[in-house]
């Protein structure tokens, strides 16, 4: 374990209880996130990638393993200890339409971590919220509006402003751009990169889209059925995947170039039919 690691996850397992059954969503997952680094958790639905993020911030209970944040074991942190961690780890959710309370104004939403987490008075929080909006490139006059007045991209900017309000050392980004249009996605990713440089935060970037990861993350952890199948630098994983599942993921992702995409498709279908004939033999 490296001293500069912001987050260390070791042997993490998370069970979900449904009625009498328990099913294991995540098993034996371990990885580190260094200071100022972006690590991507990539997987398809049901791979357990979001569960890992939720386990790190304490939204789901951990069955086994350890989560160490800035050198402190937070695996079994109590509610009170969790609340004091708000200044160290924050989260940006996938759906900016759900993650902002529609009844509150932008000012109230941004003040929440400052008053609840930092114990500032509303008046003290007010000056900070103006600065936060500036950071995410929103004009200060949006303060009194409610989430209903904003587009998806603008809402996600507000959610990002809320997450960086306490200048955390780590932000869990749970598919922050998958509900957005491509041009908006590009702008939000630019914003996240810019904030990372300014505040020197680490990101745990959860996504299903390898293409997004390729330019945005330095390292990638690929998950399938709650287990890690491959870990590596993003160019390694995207250009020369070793694990068959990762290879299938890379092959299935369409690229925005019809000529190359035709070649990729032919290669994928060829590999597929070879695999099938291999099975029948």
């Amino acid at each position: 374990m490296n001293k500069a690691d912001v987050l260390v996850v070791e042997g993490l397992a998370v069970d979900y209880k449904l009625r009498r059954q328990t099913s294991r969503a995540v098993s034996d997952v371990g990885f580190q996130v260094a200071a100022g680094e972006t690590v991507a958790l990539v997987g398809e639905s049901g791979s357990g990638k979001s569960t890992i993020g939720n386990a790190v911030v304490g939204l789901v209970p951990i069955t086994a393993g350890r989560v160490i944040l800035n050198g402190k074991d937070i695996t079994r942190a109590t509610g009170r200890q969790r609340r004091s961690l708000a200044g160290q780890v924050q989260m940006i959710f996938q759906n900016p339409y759900g993650s902002l309370n529609p009844a509150l104004t932008v000012e109230q939403i941004l003040a929440e971590p400052l008053t609840a987490g930092l114990g500032l008075s509303l008046r003290e929080a007010a000056s900070r919220t103006v600065e936060l909006l500036e950071r995410v490139h929103l004009p200060a006059d949006v303060m009194k509006r409610r989430p209903g007045a904003f587009s998806g991209g603008q809402r996600q900017r507000i959610a990002i402003a809320r997450a960086v309000a306490l200048r955390p050392s780590l932000i869990i980004c749970d598919e922050p751009t998958s509900a957005l249009d491509v041009t908006t996605q590009a702008a939000v990713l630019d914003l996240l990169a810019e904030l990372q440089r300014e505040i020197n935060m680490s990101y745990l970037f959860i996504t299903h889209d390898l293409a997004v990861v390729k330019s945005f993350a330095s390292r990638v952890v690929v998950l399938q059925h709650g287990r890690i199948v491959e870990t590596g630098t993003s160019s390694q994983v995207c250009n020369a995947p070793i694990n068959p599942y990762t290879q299938a993921l890379v092959a299935a992702a369409p690229v925005p170039d019809p000529v190359i995409q035709r070649q990729r498709r032919a290669a994928r279908l060829g590999a597929l039919s070879m695999a099938e004939s291999g099975v029948s033999n």
Partner: peptide, 22 residues
């Protein structure tokens, strides 16, 4: 189950605050 309740928890809001505000 709303995401904004999860967001408030991550922001360090106490249960009482979440109940009355959100």
């Amino acid at each position: 189950e709303e995401l904004y309740v999860a967001a408030a928890r991550v922001s360090g809001a106490t249960p009482a605050r979440i109940l009355f505000r959100h």
